[in-house]
Each structure stands twice: as C-alpha cells, then as structure tokens.
Design a protein around this nucleic acid. Structure first.
Lengths: 188, 188
DNA sequence: GCCGGTGATGTCAGTTGCTGTCATCACAGT
DNA sequence: ACTGTGATGACAGCAACTGACATCACCGGC
C-alpha cells in the first residue's frame, strides 16, 4: 500500500463540488474541502491556485481541443468555418460526459458571481488562443479576433440551451443552428 | 469647514488608481489606499464592495447609456442596428473623456487577471441587460442574446484598437468598421 | 540490500481582504 | 436648545492564501 491514497487532485475536485452544492460556495471553507478529501488546507493550495480554480480543472483540455481543431481544419475552410468546426468538436466532447455532473457543476458556477468571473476569463483566454491559431493560419486582425469571439459567443449560447433542454439533445446541432442564427442576425 | 473633506469616494478612486499604477495591484493594500485618501480601511469597504470594484465605478453609467440607446432606437431598426447605435453612442461617450486617464485605468486592468475578471463580468452583465432590452422590443431569443453578445464583442475590439492608436482617432468610426468586418467574417 | 535524492504531504506562523458591531460627532430640521 | 441621521472611526475576528521547514515512503544506483 502506498503512503498516500491516489488521485488527491480528483478527490479535492469531487469534495469541492459536493460541498459547493450542499452548502454554497462562500459557506464552504477550503479546510472543509481538504478534510473531506482526507488532506490538509495547505495541500489544497498546492493543487489549485485558489478556491475557485478547483472547478476549472478541465479548461486546459478544452482549450487544447479547440486549438487543435482549428489548426487541423482544411486549408480551404474560411476562418469562421474553422472556428465552427472547433466549436462543434467541443460540443461533441461534452456529449460524451455525464450530463448530470456537467449540469451540477454549471449550476454552481452560474449561481455564484465569483465563479462566473472565473469562467468568463477562461472563455476569454480560450478566445485569445483561438484567435492566435487563426493568425497562425494567415488570418489577419481584426478578422481573427472577431471570428474567435463570435465562435466563443456561439459556444456559450449553444451550451446554455443544451443545459436547459431535458433530454439528450444534440449539442453540435445546436451549435450549427446558432451559427446560422448569428449569420442571419448580423446582416440578412 | 465641514467635518469631512468632500468626495470621499472620488478620493478613494484616485488613490487606488495611482497606487495600482505605482506599485501594482497585489502589492498595494486597501489600508494604503484609504490612508492616501485620508480615510480608514473600513470606510473603503463602505464605498466599494472589494478591492477591485474601486476601478469600476463608471460601469453603471455605461450600462445605462447602452440600455437607453437601444430602447430609444427607432422601431424600424433591426436588432443588430439598434445595438450598433448603442455601441457607437458609448464610443462617443469615451471620446469625451481624458484619453490618458482612460488609458491608465485600462493598462492596470489588463495587466492584472483579477481585474480582467471583473471587467469581463461587467461586460457580460452589460450584454445581458442589452439582450433584455432587445427582448423588450419584441426580439425573440436566441436572436436577442446573439445580437447583444456580438455587439459587446465589437465594442471590446473597437475599444482595444482605439486604445492602441496614438492620436485622437474616431472611436465610433472604429465601431462601425468592426461591425462591417463582423458582417463580412460571419459570411455575409 | 543499503543509501541518498525526490516528491507529495503535513505543520505552523503570518499577512491581508473583508465583515460585524459599536461609538463618535458635525449637521439639519424642529 | 434638542434630537435624529449619516458618514466615519475603532476594534475584534474569520477565512483565503503564502512562505518556510519538517517528514517519510518510494526509487534508482551502487
């Protein structure tokens, strides 16, 4: 038997989500999270920069998927098409997960402004990375930034609608619909 | 002579901006800000909810201007046109201010992730208010949300470009250009 | 099979953001 | 002159976060 139980980070994430759901974000203390995970407060801060970050462990992987999708899009694809493919791919990724857990996490985040702040900066960082990848494909600014920001906006809106729907609705399809709506709204 | 110097709030705002510029955001303590303003830490927190909020005193007025502009747009205006008018009006407002101070404030905000978080949630709130006003004009979702989000994205990008330019460039014009670019990028 | 390095954790003390509570006292209205 | 009010100060306290140092199973080399 090893000295420590494995997956300390995962245990902290689970404990945090559970406690945030049960008692609310501000009411739960980092010490409580750590204790429930069988660790100490200091160890929590070795795994996560702050009390909010524990809910955003997956953002790096999401950004990687986004960036790879844009980079791998066919040369012939326009900027907005490349972005749309990436957003659809990200949507597909979310559909592979347990929707209840995704929903729980999202409920906590949207219920607490401090967590919404963190989510917004994650999405902004994602948009910046997307724009950067587009520039790498030779797309000039402001086109690159605009396409990236528009893509993230569509992603957010589609994700929200997906959460709101009860069954196993098709997220990539919602994404495509929202892109069409955006096209219509911006000028036709 | 009155018991207290007038404009405590304004003094706190000035002191905070100066200290954030001189020493950085994390390095300056609230006690220092209060002392420079001739007040106490406790009084700071009576005027501002937290250490970040002191830089965002103008956001309520900005949101008011946005919402009023959309509400007052002619009935014949499409959602995106109404939003574009509001963004242009906001741009005009910024041009009436001392660009150096605006630039200083923005430099501090963009240099510190915590402050960027706060800025992002202010803009998100603004977008939500905008969407709400559009719905009040009879625009259904997701069109209202998409138009609002697109408008805020354009605002952000135009504002950034305006900050980057040296002279007294025309912000409302940058806004119109960005809207045209968005239209082109999304495929129209 | 022992041995020193390593990495994840624990312990503890300290700073700072932020809050609750009560006291103070110029000012305005009566 | 009397009293209520509002902005402030004073003080105590909690929780987030950090730095410094100790511990000790495990791993690789010998």
């Amino acid at each position: 038997m090893s000295r420590w139980e494995p997956n300390a980070r995962g245990r902290l994430e689970q404990a945090a989500l559970a406690l945030y759901l049960e008692n609310g974000f501000e009411q739960t203390t980092v010490a409580e999270i750590a204790t429930r995970a069988g660790l100490t407060e200091r160890t929590f801060f070795r795994h996560f920069a702050d009390k909010r970050e524990v809910l955003f462990g997956g953002s790096a992987a999401l950004q990687g998927l986004f960036v790879r999708s844009v980079a791998d899009a066919p040369e012939s694809a326009s900027p907005i098409e490349a972005v749309a493919m990436a957003v659809a791919a990200a949507g597909a990724m979310f559909m592979e997960r347990d929707k209840d857990i995704v929903r729980q996490r999202q409920a906590v985040v949207t219920a607490h402004p401090e967590l919404r702040e963190r989510e917004l900066i994650k999405l902004a960082t994602l948009a910046a990375a997307l724009a950067d990848t587009l520039r790498g494909r030779g797309v000039p600014d402001p086109d690159a930034t605009l396409a990236a920001e528009a893509g993230i906006a569509v992603f957010r809106i589609s994700f929200e609608r997906w959460m709101a729907e009860p069954g196993q609705s098709d997220l990539p399809r919602l994404v495509r619909d929202s892109f069409d709506k955006l096209k219509a709204v911006t000028g036709n």
